[in-house]
């Protein structure tokens, strides 16, 4: 048996379900370690989700995920990436669960995302942009920035679940909004953004210039766009700027 064949057989055995018994006590140790390590990674990555759905339900979902989604990255930190998708299927009757897993995953990603710096209002003022510069100003999104539409008061649930002893109520329905996650300094942040505000922000996140984004917002809403932009800048949603050619 070649080394390649030996390794394929080995990993297939340790990742198999219980229908295939381990071939030796030693292989049982490797199988247990494989499952335990992945289950621990999910439990750590989705601590508040586990609190919300309960340990038993979470562990069933986790076991399903481990069998259906073998890890493929060199870093265990990436293992939960598809778990929000699986949560959406498994907890279809409780849509806040998928939202919660998404928020938990992206807060963690933002926490350790590669550094990008932060564009502060003072830095922007110091750039001394002329009128034509604003037209071609492009903004780099902050480290870990991600967004998702939600229709429940997820931030309330998220905050309540910080307390392991809390038993929060189901989150109330809200007007559909966009949930933003990003890192400012060393801390991950989140904010619910109204859909009209997000419609103004989205072009900037997509790489449009400030001038293009302002034009899309509409001439009659330029004041509002300016106020929103000041808030985004204060929130630390941008990591840097460049002037398009």
């Amino acid at each position: 048996m070649s080394l390649i064949e030996r390794q394929r057989g080995f990993i297939a055995e340790i990742a198999a379900d219980d229908d295939l018994a381990p071939s030796s006590p030693g292989m049982a140790i490797y199988r247990n370690a494989y499952r335990a390590r992945l289950a621990d990674a999910l439990a750590v990555s989705f601590e508040r989700t586990r609190r919300w759905v309960g340990a038993d339900m979470f562990d069933l979902a986790s076991a399903h995920y481990i069998l259906s989604h073998p890890p493929c990255s060199w870093t265990l930190d990436a293992y939960g990436e598809r778990f929000p998708d699986v949560a959406r299927e498994l907890f279809a009757q409780d849509p806040e669960v998928a939202d919660l897993t998404w928020l938990e995953w992206h807060m963690q990603q933002a926490f350790a995302a590669p550094d990008r710096g932060e564009l502060t209002p003072a830095m922007l003022a110091g750039a001394e942009l002329g009128e034509s510069d604003w037209e071609r100003l492009e903004l780099l999104p902050a480290a870990g920035l991600a967004f998702r539409p939600v229709a429940c008061a997820l931030p309330t649930l998220w905050s309540a679940l910080a307390d392991p002893a809390a038993r929060p109520l189901s989150p109330a329905a809200i007007e559909p909004a966009m949930l933003l996650v990003w890192r400012k300094g060393l801390a991950p942040h989140y904010r619910l953004v109204a859909l009209d505000e997000f419609a103004a922000l989205a072009p900037l996140l997509d790489g449009a210039s400030f001038g293009e984004a302002a034009a899309q917002a509409g001439e009659d809403r330029l004041d509002q766009f300016g106020q929103w932009f000041a808030q985004w800048l204060g929130d630390g949603l941008f990591a840097g700027l460049r002037l398009a050619d």
């Binding site: 080394l3 030996r6 490797y30 890890p71 493929c72």
Partner: peptide, 22 residues
């Protein structure tokens, strides 16, 4: 050790056969 095969990482320190090929 080895830690997986293409497309499947075990996140464990898996044992090698001690052969010339390995």
């Amino acid at each position: 050790c080895w830690t997986g095969v293409p497309g499947h990482t075990a996140h464990d320190l898996l044992p090698l056969p001690y052969t010339d090929e390995a």
